[in-house]
């Protein structure tokens, strides 16, 4: 069927071009439409099948399916809840263990620090004692060395004085032709060495 709209005496007119069969069909459709049942009215068979299906579904859901599913869900949720509670308890126990360990660790650390301090004090005391001992021994050795040096110095000085007296005695003998008094020479040499040769 072809539909056209055209103007006729200034009015819009819809023109339908159709075959005879289509015209018959349209007429019968139009007739059927006027005598057709209300499209909104519920059909008894739809009502029956719809209601029956729903009620069967509802009865099965109420008596079997929902209780079983819900029971399973509750059991699993309770299991999960218990697992969570157990996990919480384990976590708390672990926390208390950690706290106890940390407390023990603090005690051990304090004890270790005390022992280290004590060892350090002992070490300091021993070092001080050893230092004092070494210092004392060094003092003794120093005094001995000083005495030895002093004795050696005196001996060398006596030897130098004797040598100088001998040289002076020989020089004076050669100069005056007679041997000078040894005690006078020795005294003169002693005086000269004490004053460093300065007059």
């Amino acid at each position: 069927m072809i539909v056209h709209v055209t103007t006729w005496h200034g009015e819009l007119v819809q023109v339908r071009v159709a075959t005879e069969e289509q015209t018959d069909s349209a007429a019968s459709t139009s007739e059927a439409a006027t005598s057709a049942p209300n499209p909104i009215a519920p059909e008894p068979k739809e009502l029956l099948w719809g209601a029956g299906s729903f009620l069967v579904f509802l009865v099965l859901m109420r008596l079997y399916m929902f209780p079983k599913i819900k029971k399973g869900m509750d059991a699993r949720y309770n299991g999960i809840r218990e697992d969570l509670e157990q996990a919480d308890a384990t976590r708390l126990a672990a926390k208390s263990d950690v706290a106890a360990y940390e407390a023990a660790l603090v005690g051990v650390r304090a004890e270790a620090a005390a022992r280290v301090d004590k060892a350090r004090q002992t070490l300091d005391q021993e070092r001080t004692a050893l230092m004092a001992d070494a210092t004392a021994r060094n003092g003794v050795k120093r005094q001995a060395a000083e005495a030895e040096i002093s004795a050696a110095r005196v001996a060398v000085r006596d030897q130098v004085a004797a040598a100088v007296a001998s040289v002076t005695d020989r020089t004076a003998q050669l100069a005056v032709g007679k041997k000078p008094d040894a005690s006078v020479v020795a005294q003169a040499v002693q005086q000269a060495m004490q004053t460093g040769g300065r007059s």
């Binding site: 099948w49 069967v56 579904f57 099965l60 079983k68 599913i69 399973g72």
Partner: peptide, 24 residues
């Protein structure tokens, strides 16, 4: 329409029946 209603109920029953049979 009746067929769809029946099919809807059957699909619902299948889903929930199958779910009820599984290990919860």
């Amino acid at each position: 329409v009746g067929l769809i209603a029946v099919a809807s109920a059957l699909i619902g029953i299948f889903i929930f029946m199958s779910a009820a049979q599984k290990n919860p």
